[in-house]
C-alpha cells in the first residue's frame, strides 16, 4: 500500500520535474521577449555535452553541471546580441533564425564531436519503499525543479532586475522612457532562459545516452507545457506542468506509455480550446 502510494507520487514527481525543467527556459524567453526559441533543445544539448566533457575532464559532477549551465547562459547572451537583437520586431524571422541555429548546432556537434559521446553514470544509487526500488537522483531532479520555480519567483518578484523585466514585459516603450534599458533586460532574459535550458541538460545528462539530436527528446514536452501555461512563467509553467503531469502519470500507469503520450496531447488540445491564453492568461483575467 505504502509502496503503491509512494510510487504514484514518484511517477508524478518524475513527469512534473521533466516538464518544469525542460520548459522553464523556453517559457522565460517566450514570456519576456515574445521570441519562440526553436534552438531550445540545442541549448539543452549544450548543457549536457559541457557537463559530460567537464565531468570526464575530472570535475566533480555538481561543478560540471554548473559549467554546463553557465556555458549555455553565456552562449545565449552572445547569440541574443548578435542574432536576436536585430530581429526584435520580427517574431517570425527570429523563429526562423533560431531554427537555423538549432540545425547548425546539431550538425556542428555531429561533425566536431562525433555521433556518440561517453555517458556519465547516474549518481546516488537507489532506495526502497514497500518493495519497489527507486532512484535517489530522480528525487534530486524533483527538488531541482522546485528550486528552479522558487528561483524564477524570487528573481522576478524580489529583485531590481525583476521589476525592470516585468515593466518591459508590460509596456516596453514606457519602461524605456523611465530609464530601463530594454536591450540589457532582453540580453539577460535570453541568457537566463538559455541557462535554464542548459541546467535542464546538465541535470538530465547522467540519466540519458548522449547524441547530438538528444535535444529533440525534450522539445515536445517543453513546447506543450509553455503552450498550456501561457506567457507567464510564474502563473503558467508550474500549474501547466502539474496538470499535464497528473494526466500523463495516470494514463501511463493504467494504459502504458503510448496512451500516456496521446493523452497528454489531447489534454493540451482541450485546455487550449477552453483557455486560449493558457493558465496564466486565465488567472490574470480572473484577477483583473
Amino acid at each position: 500500500m505504502m509502496g503503491n502510494l509512494f510510487s504514484y507520487f514518484y511517477q508524478f514527481a518524475d513527469v512534473f520535474s521533466f516538464l518544469v525543467l525542460s520548459a522553464a527556459g523556453l517559457a522565460i524567453i517566450f514570456g519576456m521577449m515574445g521570441v519562440i526559441n526553436m534552438a531550445h533543445g540545442e541549448f539543452i544539448m549544450c548543457g549536457v555535452y559541457v557537463t559530460a566533457a567537464t565531468f570526464h575532464a575530472g570535475l566533480p559532477l555538481p561543478l560540471a553541471q554548473a559549467c554546463g549551465t553557465l556555458v549555455a547562459a553565456l552562449i545565449g547572451m552572445v547569440l541574443e546580441v548578435v542574432l536576436i537583437r536585430p530581429l526584435y520586431n520580427r517574431p517570425l524571422d527570429s523563429l526562423l533564425v533560431t531554427w537555423g541555429l538549432s540545425l547548425v548546432a546539431t550538425q556542428g556537434t555531429l561533425v566536431l564531436v562525433g555521433s556518440t559521446f561517453p555517458g556519465i553514470g547516474t549518481p546516488g544509487g537507489g532506495f526502497e519503499v514497500g518493495g519497489y526500488g527507486f532512484s535517489v537522483y530522480r528525487m534530486v531532479l524533483f527538488a531541482a525543479s522546485l528550486l528552479v520555480l522558487a528561483f524564477v519567483y524570487l528573481l522576478f518578484m524580489r529583485t531590481r532586475f525583476g521589476v525592470h523585466a516585468r515593466a518591459v514585459m508590460q509596456n516596453a516603450g514606457m519602461a524605456q522612457a523611465l530609464g530601463v534599458r530594454r536591450s540589457q533586460v532582453y540580453a539577460l532574459s535570453f541568457g537566463i532562459g538559455a541557462g535554464l535550458a542548459g541546467l535542464c541538460g546538465a541535470l538530465y545528462a547522467p540519466t540519458m545516452s548522449l547524441i547530438p539530436t538528444m535535444g529533440a527528446s525534450f522539445i515536445v514536452e517543453a513546447f506543450v507545457t509553455v503552450v498550456v501555461g501561457g506567457s507567464s512563467v510564474l502563473l503558467g509553467t508550474a500549474p501547466a506542468a502539474a496538470a499535464l503531469a497528473i494526466v500523463r502519470t495516470g494514463l501511463n500507469a493504467w494504459y502504458g506509455q503510448i496512451i500516456g503520450q496521446i493523452g497528454l496531447l489531447i489534454a493540451v488540445i482541450l485546455i487550449i480550446r477552453v483557455l486560449p491564453d493558457g493558465f496564466s492568461g486565465w488567472l490574470a483575467k480572473r484577477e483583473s
Binding site: 556518440t116 555517458g119 553514470g121 547516474t122 546516488g124 544509487g125 537507489g126 532506495f127 526502497e128 518493495g131 519497489y132 526500488g133 527507486f134 532512484s135 535517489v136 537522483y137 530522480r138 547522467p206 540519466t207 540519458m208 545516452s209 548522449l210 547524441i211 539530436t213 538528444m214 527528446s217
Partner: peptide, 30 residues
C-alpha cells in the same frame, strides 16, 4: 517491471533516446 517480477527482460528498444532505459533502470536498483 518491479511489479511483474520477471526472471529476465527481452529488450527490443531502438534508438539513442530509448537506450536511456538502462541507466535509469540501474539507478532504481533493478
Amino acid at each position: 517491471i518491479q511489479r511483474a517480477k520477471p526472471d529476465w527482460l527481452y529488450m527490443l528498444d531502438v534508438g539513442a533516446a530509448q537506450t536511456s532505459f538502462y541507466e535509469q533502470k540501474n539507478a532504481a536498483g533493478v
